[in-house]
């Protein structure tokens, strides 16, 4: 097989894969796209929810420790 032929096959397979990637991004195919829709605002919502939930967990842990200390004092 000539080198040019080999390059031809490689290019053929490359184009094949690229086209398949392009097909996967076709919006007509229903995917779990919620986190990518509307300018990906859902990702920000997720991040903020995680941060706020983390702060709440933090406050709850402080509450528990404080209650233990208060019980120990009395």
């Amino acid at each position: 097989m000539k080198a040019t032929n080999r390059i031809r096959y490689i290019v053929l397979f490359l184009l094949f894969f690229i086209s398949s990637i392009g097909y996967a991004q076709d919006t007509s195919v229903e995917m779990a796209d919620t986190m990518r829709a509307n300018g990906k605002i859902y990702v920000v919502v997720g991040v903020l929810s995680i941060i706020f939930t983390g702060i709440i967990v933090f406050l709850v842990i402080i509450e528990r420790r404080l209650r233990k200390l208060e019980k120990g004092q009395n």
Binding site: V44, V45, S49, F52, V60, E63, E70
Partner: peptide, 24 residues
Amino acid sequence: TSPGIVWWKWVGAILVLYSIIQGL
């Protein structure tokens, strides 16, 4: 002694979480 985590604290946390999600 003060009580532990009373109900209104949870209400506050849930309302703020709701406002973060729904607000965006």
